[in-house]
Each structure stands twice: as C-alpha cells, then as structure tokens.
C-alpha cells in the first residue's frame, strides 16, 4: 500500500529536503554514477574515481594505519562501484552515500579478516546495500508507516477525511456526498490534516 499525499500544489512526498536538495557537486556525482550504470561510461567512472579514491584512501589510512591496506580498500571499493553501479537507485539516496556504504561494508570485512584470519563477507547481511536495492521500495514503506503512525494525532474528522481519500481512494466529491457535507468543508479539513501531518513528519526527520 502506498500512501501518496499530493494535494493541490502541496506536494509532500515526505522526504527530508536536506537530503534531496543536491548541490552542484552532488548532482555531478549522481549523474556520473548514472552514466556508469546505464552506459558503462569509462569517462564518468574516471571522474568518480578521481573524486573518491583519495577520500577512500584517507579513510582507509585512518582505520588501518597501513598504506597497502588503504590502497586495497580504494581498489576493492571502486571495483564494486564499477561492477555494481547498475544497482544504484537514485530514488533512494545520493550516489555519494551509496559509494560510502559500499566502502564502509568492505572496510568492515577487511577488519574482520585482519582479526580472525577468516574470509568472511558478512557485511552485506548487516547492511544490505548492494543486494537489497529491489524495486520494492522499503523507504516508501517506512515513510508510510511513519505517516500512518501520525494519523492518531489528527482530530476524528480530519482522520476520517485522510483515510477516505488516501487509503480508500475516494474522490473529494464522493467523500463530500458520502458525509453530506459541502465540498469546501472536505477540502479545508483535508488541508488542515495534511499540514498537521507534514509538520509531524518534519519533526521526525529533523
């Protein structure tokens, strides 16, 4: 079940705007990764590499204190990015965060290997980034649950309107007829309800 709240021009897809408003740099990174995913574009990958390799190396040096291991981390992370780019789903977040999580996971497995001498790759079970980018949008699902959890904060009249329109998918006119109310009343109740839900969700995400 997907709850979409788009009412008049008030489109609240409930995402934290701070994460979605990408600055120029992040937009470039997103478009490079998309080019790698769709066209196996080597030039775009080289740009990604130029940006991320020194950062991954610095992170690796911090974690491992060894140049060779830090360089391993660069190589393996960027190889995964090259090979698995097609799994990146821009609707779920920034390209840079996706690359960061791939590095983070590989780093965890490397540290395990150093400690236990075992070739475990357990990180994908702990942080399912690579394999779990399925079309079934878990993120929507979570936001729906979050949204539904706030329905209780509405007045009974507001809740009734939201449920009828978004869960039972009635039109505003149908609902007005059903409740024997003027259409304007339904609209204003809905508007109030949505602005209340919106502020609740923003409070959650801040």
């Amino acid at each position: 079940m997907i709850v979409r709240i788009a009412h008049n021009s008030t489109d609240i897809t409930l995402n934290n705007t701070k994460f979605n408003s990408l600055d120029g740099e992040q937009l470039k990174i997103n478009s490079w990764l998309k080019l790698v995913a769709t066209k196996q574009d080597k030039q775009a990958f080289s740009e990604l590499f130029k940006w991320f390799a020194p950062r991954i190396r610095a992170h690796g040096l911090q974690r491992f204190k060894q140049e060779a291991l830090a360089m391993d981390l660069v190589q393996e992370t960027m190889l995964l990015v090259w090979r698995k780019a097609v799994l990146f789903n821009a609707d779920k977040g920034k390209a840079s965060t996706w690359i960061y999580t791939i590095m983070r996971n590989y780093c965890f497995d490397m540290l395990r290997k150093k400690q236990t001498q075992k070739e475990d790759t357990i990180s994908d079970d702990l942080w399912p980034v690579i394999e779990q980018q399925t079309p079934d949008d878990n993120n929507d699902h979570l936001q729906n649950r979050l949204l539904l959890s706030h329905l209780g904060s509405l007045s009974l009249q507001q809740k009734q309107v939201v449920e009828a329109i978004y869960l039972q998918e009635m039109t505003q006119q149908e609902l007005a007829t059903h409740l024997d109310l003027p259409l304007g009343t339904v609209k204003s109740r809905l508007r109030l309800a949505i602005s209340k839900l919106k502020s609740k969700l923003e409070a959650d995400l801040d």
């Binding site: 950062r55 610095a58 780019a85």
Partner: peptide
C-alpha cells in the same frame, strides 16, 4: 567522509586500468 582533507599527490593510475579489466554487471 567526503569533506575530508585529501592529498592529490597519490598516483592511482594503474588502479583504474585494473578496474576496467572487469566487466560491469548489466542488470540487477
């Protein structure tokens, strides 16, 4: 992680070639 200060004097060039020896996955 992205905001780290990094040195740009490291030579990664052979690494990029090694990565391109692999074929990317074409579908999920």
């Amino acid at each position: 992680f992205e905001a780290q200060d990094v040195s740009n004097n490291v030579n990664f060039s052979s690494m990029l070639d090694k990565i391109f020896e692999h074929k990317p996955d074409l579908q999920v």
